[in-house]
Design a binder for these strands. Structure first.
Lengths: 214, 214
DNA sequence: GGCAATGCACGTACCGGTTAGTTAAGTCTG
DNA sequence: CAGACTTAACTAACCGGTACGTGCATTGCC
């Protein structure tokens, strides 16, 4: 990203700033209504931009959606890198990852609905995105490393697939949060109180550690 | 349901049959495109019914969606009841439930996308549905029973919340399947081969048993 | 001055929902 | 039990609103 000098006078015409506003508004709108339900006019309004700008910079609603998705994945992967899991002992690293994933999903609920939307469309917007592979590979490799280190240290049992583990860590947080509305009905319980959220995190950490421990 | 006598000549005008065709077509269309992306005209066409019939029987697109959702939950709960988990020993019962859930989601992928769609809309269609509570309560109670029996028999550790367990069993299957498209990109692996699916089921059973065992 | 950034206003297609009317199937009556 | 009557199932055509996308004019910035 370019630096945001504090002394910079606000330009009336600022391509970059406009694009950012459009992307932020689009993320909100797509997250709220899905691809089919999202309205380009609403995005333009919320971005304080003219609809013409959206088509100028992003060509189509679908290409805008693609860009929003890629950015969303880039954001979470960037945040994960900042955890420096490779510097932690295996058990702490995994616990940190479970806790981080949980908190990230809570702080960024749009990520969850965006991913859901993209999967409804069979990931056709991200299919073939080189950027996605660049983002994912280091992350998956990192978790595989933690596992290996854990096995070598004798704290984790051998033979666990890093991909299965990754999916499971995501699943137990993701499902609870995206399906919290139907969940509240099925289980007749408020799943979003502080106590409920804390209990779920503890449960998830327990689930993963029991899965891994030798 | 009324009996379907084999000798019955197909009536030209058959309210019940038409409603069923509409519901089946609607489930498909809503599952494929979400509430916002679904087209009432498409549903009418696929149901071989006039669009007017949809409004006659279901009042609105949203009420049709509500009905489709309720029916989907009724279907899975009915299938679960047929497992007679109360007649199995605790460990077998849980394993059976994990396996059933996994297979049901695979055989009925529309259920997953419908639930996702409803959660995108914060469950406003199912909120206050008495039918949903009637369906859910026995199911949740059943799993709680299995847990209790397992603790009494000394095979499960005490203190596990039945709701957390239920959510986790659903999560580890559900997430893998709904997010299989972005998953294939992130993990650069086909998640839907027979081998991959078998491996996931085994992993999920292991995850749950390790979570429960004393 | 030249070009990128922006705004206006419109086209065209579509979409949820409705109006007005038709026809099949039961049902009442003599 | 035949034929008039009633009701419910069904259809075609349409409407008002809205959605994505664009042509073209304008304006700020280097």
């Amino acid at each position: 990203m370019t630096e945001t000098a504090t002394t910079e006078r606000p330009r009336i015409r600022d391509a970059e700033a406009t694009q950012k506003r459009i992307l932020a508004a689009a993320r909100k709108e797509f997250a709220k209504s899905g691809l089919g339900g999202a309205r380009v006019d609403t995005i333009a309004q919320r971005a304080k931009a003219n609809k013409r700008m959206i088509y100028h910079y992003f060509k189509s609603k679908e290409q805008l959606f693609t860009r929003v998705l890629e950015d969303a994945y880039a954001d979470i992967r960037t945040a994960e890198r900042k955890l420096h899991l490779d510097e932690l002992d295996p058990e702490t690293a995994i616990t940190t990852l479970v806790r981080f994933t949980w908190r990230y999903y809570q702080a960024n609920p749009e990520f969850l609905t965006l991913v859901n939307s993209e999967n409804l469309h069979r990931a056709r917007h991200l299919k073939g995105s080189a950027r996605m592979h660049e983002l994912s590979r280091p992350f998956v490799g990192m978790v595989a490393d933690i596992l290996e280190r854990g096995v070598a240290a004798g704290v984790f049992r051998p033979g666990i697939d890093a991909v299965q583990l990754n999916i499971t860590i995501a699943a137990i947080g993701y499902y609870y949060l995206t399906n919290r509305f139907t969940g509240a009905i099925v289980y007749e319980r408020d799943l979003m109180t502080k106590e409920a959220l804390d209990a779920r995190l503890a449960f998830n950490i327990e689930t993963i550690l029991r899965l891994l421990r030798a």
